[in-house]
């Protein structure tokens, strides 16, 4: 008689892949229904439930692909990357990279980037809570200290860079607007997106490349003057004051020192 460990290893293989059922079928009672069909009930539970997790998490990606194309891709992903822990809120992080590897479709540019944006929103939704930096705290700091200030970013803050119009494509897919997608693609512009959840609602806004560089530099712990210089290297006309005001209002920071 095989050990419980052996039975479970063979069961798991047979559940995921009908071709591997031979390792477990002999341990199962038929009783009017073939063991393969009995195992099939579990296979359906596993695959359908995980697929529905991915559908809920990547709605814009699914709209762009179409449900008939999304479903088999989701199943391929599930078979290559099962959840690593029993917390489905963490499942799907690898899906954008999987799409990048699996889909080469000129008609669907930025597909993986839109999926990355959707994942960032999911991730931000469940990120740790933190109170945002009060603009008055910053205002109370003497101006001469500003160049050396370092900022702590909100734990939910995520940045997305794309070679294409990722934000517009995401928005257009959710609005089911083919025109919106076409216009965005025709523009050929690159977009960057900031995702943050300062309180209970996830905010998603496009930001300039210089602004993204500023936030990335601050995230690395660089002082404000150096971070601003990085931003200005991409855009000499970068308005630091306006960008900071926007970040303060949007809750990007939790503190500064």
């Amino acid at each position: 008689m095989p050990t419980l460990h052996e039975v479970q290893a063979a069961f798991a293989r047979g559940v995921l892949d009908p071709a591997l059922i031979g390792g477990i079928a002999g341990r199962l009672v038929g009783d009017g229904i073939a063991p393969e069909r009995r195992l099939g009930v579990y296979r359906n539970n596993v695959l359908a439930s995980l697929r529905s997790v991915l559908e809920g998490r990547f709605p814009a990606t699914r709209r762009r692909l179409g449900p008939e194309r999304f479903a088999p891709l989701a199943l391929d992903f599930i078979r290559t990357e099962l959840p690593a822990r029993p917390q489905l809120s963490t499942y799907g992080a690898g899906f954008p990279a999987f799409l990048e590897r699996s889909i080469e479709d000129r008609a669907l540019p930025c597909l993986a980037d839109v999926a990355r944006l959707e994942w960032a929103r999911e991730d931000a939704y469940h990120a740790a809570d933190a109170a945002s930096l009060n603009p008055r705290t910053l205002a109370s700091i003497p101006a001469e200290r500003y160049p050396g200030l370092r900022f702590e970013l909100h734990p939910s803050l995520r940045l997305i860079r794309s070679a294409g119009p990722v934000h517009t494509l995401w928005r257009a897919a959710l609005d089911d607007s083919a025109e919106g997608s076409d216009r965005a693609l025709a523009s050929g512009r690159a977009e960057q997106v900031l995702v943050v959840r300062p309180e209970l609602t996830v905010a998603t806004r496009p930001i300039a490349l210089a602004d993204l560089l500023l936030v990335e530099a601050l995230a690395q712990g660089l002082p404000l003057a150096e971070a601003a210089a990085t931003a200005q290297s991409a855009d000499a006309g970068f308005d630091l004051q306006a960008a900071l005001a926007h970040h303060l209002a949007g809750g990007s920071f939790t503190g500064c020192h």
Binding site: A9, L16, N45, V46, S49, L82, P86
Partner: peptide, 12 residues
């Protein structure tokens, strides 16, 4: 529901 570090999201 867990085998070799994979979570299969069902009750076997």
């Amino acid at each position: 529901s867990i085998e070799s570090g994979h979570y299969l999201n069902d009750l076997f």
